[in-house]
């Protein structure tokens, strides 16, 4: 049984790919080996059969253009890839979606703080302490929210107070 190396050498001899020294050796081997002669004949027959039926593949472009494309692809693959940023440009609508809810909450918080921290004029009308020095006197306090005034009215309980009527705080000349 012929080994694979011998078979390949016969195929190479048939294709004309052997150098002169090895070709002479193969011819000497064929002269004394009947099995090798049969294999050579079979290979020749197979070659003749394929020659008549193989389809030729024709490229749409010329050979030089085809190889230049391959060369360019190789060069492109050899170049380092550019860094692609993961951060995509943000659209206006994305910002609006983020701003609207938080802006509303922030505005509400600010409004509440203003009402709490700056209670406004109403606080002036709600705070107050008073002491009357004389038992014969009384006082009424009226906090007018509409007119924004705190009014204290002193009156005489006994009727003989020096504070009212007989001794007014303001001396006015009626002329």
């Amino acid at each position: 049984m012929m080994n694979q190396e011998a078979q390949l050498k016969l195929q190479a001899y048939l294709d004309g790919e052997l150098p002169a020294g090895e070709r002479a050796a193969v011819e000497a081997w064929l002269a004394c080996d009947a099995e090798a002669q049969l294999l050579l004949a079979e290979l020749q027959n197979t070659g003749r059969a394929l020659d008549g039926h193989g389809a030729d593949v024709k490229l749409p472009e010329t050979r030089e253009f085809f190889w230049s494309k391959i060369e360019r692809e190789i060069e492109r693959q050899e170049q380092p890839e550019p860094v692609i940023s993961r951060h995509q440009p943000v659209s206006v609508f994305w910002w609006l979606r983020q701003w609207v809810p938080f802006s509303g909450v922030a505005a509400l918080v600010v409004l509440l703080m203003i009402l709490v921290v700056h209670p406004g004029q109403s606080n002036a009308g709600q705070f107050g302490e008073m002491e009357i020095a004389a038992d014969s006197m009384g006082a009424d306090v009226f906090r007018d929210q509409e007119q924004k005034m705190t009014m204290v009215w002193f009156y005489d309980r006994s009727g003989d107070s020096q504070f009212t009527e007989s001794s007014p705080l303001a001396t006015v000349n009626h002329q």
Binding site: S166, P168, V172
Partner: peptide
């Protein structure tokens, strides 16, 4: 604040 009372 208004402090007030009767006069003559």
């Amino acid at each position: 604040l208004v402090l007030s009372g009767n006069a003559k």
